[in-house]
C-alpha cells in the first residue's frame, strides 16, 4: 500500500500578522508545518507501522507544494518517519486551491497511491477544500474530518469515524480514497491497522522525531517536480483582492446603572 500525505508550511500562527501593500507581509515570518498536516502524517505512520517492530505495512510519501529550497518542513516529516518526499517547486501562495488540488491529484495519480491523507484545513487560510477537490479530481470516495480510522486490509476498506453534532458517524470507504483528518485522530487509540494490537496506546499527539530520524532524513529521497512536469498551470480562477487587518475594536464604556445599559443596548447598539 502507498499512502500520500500532503503537508504545507504556513507562517507561524503564534506570531502577530504584518500587513503591507494590501496583503499579508510574510517576508520576515517564521514558517512552521500546518498542525493538521502533522496529524495527517501521524495518522499515516500509525497505519503503516507495526508498533514496536520494524515491519511496515505501507510506504508513506509526504508531498508539499513549496519553493524547493524551503522544504525544512518536509525534512521534519521525513525525520518523523515518512519514507520519502515529493516537492512541487512552486510558491504555493501564488496558487489557488484549484491549482493546489490539481497538483496533488496529479502526484497521487502518478505515484499510484491507495490513500491520500490531508489535514482538514490549513491554519493560515482555513480553506477546507483540498480533500474534497482532490477526491473529485481522482474520482475516488472521500471521508472528511476523521477522528478515528480503522483499516481492514483484507476487505481493502477504511472505517472512518467522524464526530458530528449528534454523535459519531462511521463511513466505510473502499480504497483508493481520500481522507481528511481532524484533531482527535491523534488520541492514543484513534488509529487501528489490524496488525498493531487494537489495545495499543500511542502517545497523544504527533510523535517527536528522534535525533536518529533527523540525521537519517537527509538520506531519504525527495523528488522535486515543477508544475509543468505534472501538467498543472498556475493560472487560477480565484483572485485575492485585498487582505486587511480587522478594524480595531472601539473602547468599552462604563455605564452607571442597569437602566442606562438597557437604554444603550436598545437605542445605540440596537440589539434589544
Amino acid at each position: 500500500m502507498k499512502i500520500l500525505v500532503t503537508v504545507k508550511r504556513i507562517p507561524d500562527p503564534d506570531e502577530s500578522l504584518k500587513f503591507a501593500g494590501g496583503g499579508l507581509d510574510t517576508s520576515s515570518s517564521k514558517w512552521v508545518p500546518n498542525a493538521f498536516d502533522e496529524y495527517a502524517v501521524e495518522t499515516a505512520l500509525r497505519l503503516a507501522e507495526v508498533a514496536g517492530k520494524r515491519d511496515r505495512l505501507a510506504e508513506v510519501i509526504v508531498m508539499s507544494i513549496c519553493p524547493a529550497k524551503q522544504r525544512q518542513h518536509v525534512t521534519q516529516f521525513l525525520a518523523m518517519g515518512a519514507d520519502r518526499g515529493v516537492v512541487v517547486d512552486a510558491d504555493d501562495s501564488e496558487l489557488d486551491t484549484i491549482a493546489v488540488s490539481k497538483a496533488i491529484a496529479a502526484v497521487a495519480k502518478s505515484e499510484g497511491v491507495d490513500l491520500t491523507i490531508v489535514g482538514k484545513l490549513s491554519q493560515d487560510n482555513e480553506g477546507n477544500q483540498v480533500a474534497q477537490r482532490v477526491a473529485g479530481l481522482l474520482n475516488v470516495p472521500q471521508a472528511g474530518f476523521a477522528a478515528t480510522v480503522k483499516w481492514d486490509k483484507n476487505a481493502g476498506t477504511l472505517d472512518v469515524g467522524r464526530e458530528v453534532d449528534d454523535g459519531v458517524e462511521h463511513k466505510l470507504v473502499p480504497l483508493p480514497a481520500v481522507v481528511s483528518v481532524d484533531l482527535r485522530v491523534v488520541l492514543p487509540t484513534s488509529i487501528k491497522n489490524g496488525v498493531t494490537a487494537d489495545s495499543h496506546k500511542y502517545q497523544e499527539g504527533p510523535r517527536l522525531a528522534s535525533l536518529r530520524g533527523i540525521t537519517m532524513a537527509k538520506r531519504k529521497k525527495v523528488k522535486v517536480l515543477k508544475l509543468s512536469d505534472i501538467g498543472v498551470s498556475s493560472a487560477g480562477s480565484e483572485q485575492v483582492v485585498a487582505v486587511a487587518p480587522p478594524p480595531a475594536r472601539p473602547s468599552g464604556q462604563i455605564v452607571g446603572s442597569v437602566e442606562e445599559l438597557h437604554e444603550k443596548l436598545a437605542k445605540e447598539a440596537k440589539v434589544l
Binding site: R71, Q72, T75, L208, L211, R219
Partner: peptide, 22 residues
C-alpha cells in the same frame, strides 16, 4: 558531511518541542 542546515534546523525545532512540552 551528512548534516546541513536543514538537519540542524529540524534538530532545533524538535529540541524546542521537547524542552517546552516534555
Amino acid at each position: 558531511a551528512d548534516f546541513d542546515r536543514d538537519v540542524y534546523e529540524a534538530t532545533l525545532a524538535e529540541g524546542k518541542r521537547i524542552a517546552e512540552d516534555k
